[in-house]
Design a binder for these strands. Structure first.
Lengths: 197, 197
DNA sequence: TGGATACTGTAACGGTCGTAACAAAATCGT
DNA sequence: ACGATTTTGTTACGACCGTTACAGTATCCA
């Protein structure tokens, strides 16, 4: 049929992910990408379309690997309450140990993407929904098992935890201090332990 | 001595603020700025230095007008608890009515600024501290007056509210839905009303 | 009135941006 | 072995980037 590809798709996309993750969409040039991915401009355009299409592809890859992986891993936890706790503490741990201050590609993109780019905005909105739904499932599970009081509205609480996830990621960019991030979540987690009223 | 300035400093800085607020630091070109500010390139460089210096100036102006103004206005409230409530609800209202999806310049910048730009990063960190300290003062005031239970750790709660402020601003960028944003804060505000344990 | 001084406008600098034309090279089915 | 097909490397496009030289202009103090 035709000449086969000389580069590894997975490696190239991982390299592109690293670029966009560190510098964002605008600040990453196509030259940065080609150098880091080890391919030439025309190969990039032939394989992935333009820069924005590559970004969208990388964003989906990121969500799959770093968001859904974590959600699925947490949901293997038998306790909904401990799943929430572990999720948040792992998030804090990652945020603090994040040497290159990359943060989270989804959160970074939520702010960087132009408000007029409806396609990417909706993609990002759907990722936020997935996080919200994860918390909602955990909360309902915890209430069914009795470990979380029924006085808590799981819909509101899920949104509340989503807000904290986003807040942690933003705060960690300029103030990656453990005391700050742990203080942020402690009241929310404590509320799950309150006795029924 | 010399020829006086032909443009209004305040108007020019407001125009620059609007540019950076809508598009961010990178995506705003010097040509965008000169056109919107109504001045020429050399005048811009003569008056404000380079683009980054102008951005820093605009950021300080933004903090003064949109962050400190609100904090000071809220602190005129005799009740610490109601100051917190009003602050958050006003934030939500602004986020929903934000036609151009500008969000908050400070939060936007917290994510956009390069992690290696220590000067701007520290400026932004100091703004986050100011917000945290505002909440801390409100909480302490509320506890002294007895309207907030003493079982609440004001340091943690202040960080918690800061996290929510940041989370609201991020979420509103892609999901400016009232139900979402109000759900985010409701559990945190409800906690202030809990009876002592 | 005449410098001294600061601002304005025009024009352009070198550099980088995202993207594409084009030909050479490598693989396939036949 | 050949023609069809796809990827690769070279090169360069026009546009825009942040920034500045320079000459012209307006204002103040003397």
């Amino acid at each position: 049929m035709a000449r086969p590809r000389a580069f590894d798709d997975d490696k190239a996309l991982d390299a592109a992910m690293e670029c966009f993750w560190r510098r964002g969409l605008e600040a990453t040039s196509v030259r940065d990408l080609t150098m880091e991915m080890g391919i030439n401009g025309p190969s990039l355009y032939n394989a992935y379309g333009d820069k924005r299409a590559l970004f969208a592809r990388v964003l989906a890859r990121y969500a799959e690997r770093w968001m859904r992986e974590r959600i699925e891993r947490m949901e293997r936890d038998s306790s909904g309450k401990s799943a929430i706790r572990t999720f948040l503490h792992e998030l804090i741990e990652r945020s603090i140990k994040d040497e290159h201050r990359r943060g989270c590609l989804i959160v970074n993109s939520a702010l960087e993407i132009s408000p007029h780019d409806n396609e990417l905005r909706e993609v990002i909105a759907s990722y936020l929904c997935e996080i919200e739904m994860f918390f909602l499932r955990c909360l309902k599970r915890g209430q069914e098992s009795g470990e979380i009081g029924s006085h808590i509205d799981p819909r509101d609480a899920a949104r509340h935890f989503l807000g904290l996830v986003l807040g942690i990621r933003v705060a960690a960019r300029s103030r990656p201090e453990r005391a700050l991030l742990e203080g942020m979540v402690r009241p929310a987690l404590a509320q799950l332990d309150f006795p029924l009223h």
